[in-house]
Amino acid sequence: MKRKSLVSINDFSREEHIRILDLAGAFEKRPRQRILEDYVVATLFFEPSTRTRLSFESAATHLGARVIGFSDSASSSVQKGESLRDTILTVSNYADIIVIRHPKEGSARFASEVSKVPVINAGDGANQHPTQTLLDMYSIRKTQETLDNLNVAFVGDLKFGRTVHSLVMALCNYNTTFHLVSPTELKLPSSVKIHIKERNLSYYQYADLQEVIPKIDILYMTRIQKERFSDPIEYEKVKNSYVLRNVMLEGAKSNLKILHPLPRVNEIMTDVDDNPKAYYFTQALNGVFVRQALLASILGVVE
């Protein structure tokens, strides 16, 4: 994986995904290793994303790397009208690897083609967020001790949620059975379903969250945003149907874990937080280990 950019989850093979997850496991055991002391990591955040940026910077700093960059485009030369191409060309003179977050879809792919150094996509508009996908996979494997043959439910906004799209695509490599729970307006788009169909995997669609809970190993919750609805009345009708409450988990399998890419608003009631099935905060911590694994392997410091 040395010098290979990570733009889309499909840029890495199944074997490469597993390699990253194994490496992340090693960093979880020993998170502080000064193996990147000679390296500079640039974090270019053209739109703010505090959580993702801090996670990358924490990962880099734990490994001894120096971090340069900006946290939103207001404090960069974009404000002066500089093109993305010029920004990337310039920064690739200063850094050994570039982490980019950008509001336009395809920006990370373009950056990886312009850049002299490898690029990690930390989110390009509604398109891809592969490091989130890898940390989701890490969390699933860690809690279930396998990625194979699981029943995974995705709940909420399946139409616009890019974390859902990337994770569905990634899990298609592991004989997953998909349970898709969403309002009609926010169903999984056919461009994503095509990947499930290509692999001849099963998927089931539901409008009711309670119904799916006894059947699944992983419950992946997402936020439903009001502005996604063309009709506000439709939003009012469905908004409470996709809220997880602790009582709903009574019939669940013992191995069930609840994931959420965060931030959460009200789709998981706080009474769930103390349930041992709640895994979303640990999931966020796992992101640091996965990003350590990516930085170290792409920079070629570990094999």
Partner: peptide
């Protein structure tokens, strides 16, 4: 929202 519609 594609980058090709915003940059050269």
């Amino acid at each position: 929202n594609c980058i090709t519609n915003h940059e050269d």
